[in-house]
Amino acid sequence: MSLYKLITPKKFVELVAKETTRRVVPVDSTWYMPNLNKDAKAEFKDLERIQNAVYFDIDGIKDTKSPYPHMVPDLETFNKGMSQLGLKRDDILVVYDRIGNFSAPRCAWTIGLFEHPNVYLLNNFNLYKGAGYPLDTSKKESFSEYPVSDYHADSSLAIDEVVPYENIVDLVQSGDIRSKYNLVDARALDRFEGKVPEPRPDIPSGHVPGANPLPFGEVLNDGAKTFPESTEEMASRIDQVTKKLGYTIDPKKPTIAMCGTGVTGTIIKTALEHAGFKMVRLYDGSWTEWALRSGSELIAKNRD
């Protein structure tokens, strides 16, 4: 079950207009791959944003003890980050990124992990902007104009939503990964097959033995990078992609989604849940953790 709902730009604008008792707060969570050398935080302040938006930094509100980037934060770190943004438990949060649907699913999922009552994923900013809806282009000095709050989440669903490295190792070494799970990887096919370098230096390309590729770009609509609106359309898209790649996803088995560092893995997690898959979890450390912790015998390159 997804921890957030998809919302179209039109429905978002209507929600803002009709909601009178709670704040509807847009949450910009734009994040770029490190090899692009772009500064999403500076862009939030200097370029454009949806009116009244705050900026959620997935590289700031994270597990500060982990050597891997933007891993799931603990309760204290999450509550502190949300409080600094001035957010409240009864806010309706609508998450987006200026790329389209890239880092926003990761942010929406993180907020949903801590059981925020109302979380939406905007589907998406490109369509919102193209439709001529209001944008704020003034220069900003901070990531939020709301006063500091006392945000308090008291639980996390991480134990149910996140699969740790050790569990994946056990499944691979026992040979049970494909018999018991669908393991799908959101990275581009050339990276999955070890044909091109990873964007992060010193990390070999390849894939977890027993995984199948599900490149995130192929589950989104071309151009606008939106998720297909209906469950049927989403299921059909996934079926088309997997058949083209020579496999099928068994809906009776639980599914584990992964990627490079747990960002685009949430895109395919969102797609699968939108398509009706009931048991989809995220390998948070994803390929970066796997490649750095596993020996060469646990790195596959050929499709099997």
Rank of each mutant, 00 (worst) to 15 (best):
A42M: 13
F216C: 02
E232P: 04
E297N: 13
E115P: 03
E115L: 06
I238E: 00
L47S: 13
F125R: 07
S155R: 15
I177G: 00
D59G: 08
D222F: 11
W109V: 07
G130Y: 11
V169Q: 10
P9D: 00
F125L: 12
H207E: 05
F44R: 02
T226S: 14
A158D: 01
I249N: 02
T77G: 03
I58R: 00
R106G: 03
Y120V: 10
L292K: 11
P105Q: 10
W109A: 03
T8E: 11
R178C: 09
K269H: 08
V263R: 00
G223V: 08
A275R: 04
S174C: 05
G112Y: 04
K80F: 13
R106H: 12
G60K: 03
D202E: 15
E19L: 09
L189H: 05
Y120D: 04
A131G: 08
A17P: 04
P73A: 04
P117A: 14
K45T: 01
H274N: 13
I99K: 12
N124M: 11
D97I: 11
L121P: 00
L113R: 00
A300L: 05
S230L: 01
D304W: 09
E233N: 09
Y55K: 03
V148Q: 15
K10D: 12
C259A: 07
R23Q: 14
Q51D: 11
T270A: 07
D284V: 00
G194F: 03
T137D: 09
S179W: 06
L189W: 01
M33N: 09
S230P: 00
A158S: 10
P199C: 10
N37A: 14
Y96M: 11
F216H: 11
G132R: 01
T137G: 07
E229T: 14
V169L: 15
S294T: 13
A153I: 09
P209E: 05
E48H: 10
V94W: 01
K129Q: 13
F277R: 01
K41S: 10
A153K: 08
Q173C: 04
P164G: 09
L189S: 04
L282T: 02
T30H: 06
P147A: 10
L245G: 07
E43Q: 15
V280L: 06
E193M: 15
E166L: 12
A108G: 11
Q51G: 05
L282D: 02
K80L: 14
P69L: 08
I256A: 02
V263K: 01
L298W: 01
P228W: 02
P251S: 09
S294Q: 13
K45L: 13
V13D: 04
D202S: 14
M258P: 00
Y128A: 04
Y181P: 01
P251A: 06
T8C: 03
F12A: 03
L189V: 08
P197R: 07
L127V: 15
R187I: 10
L15I: 07
D222N: 09
Y146H: 12
T64L: 13
E229H: 07
G100C: 08
K5M: 00
T242M: 05
N123C: 06
W287L: 02
K129E: 14
K278W: 06
I58G: 01
Y96H: 08
D190E: 15
R106Y: 07
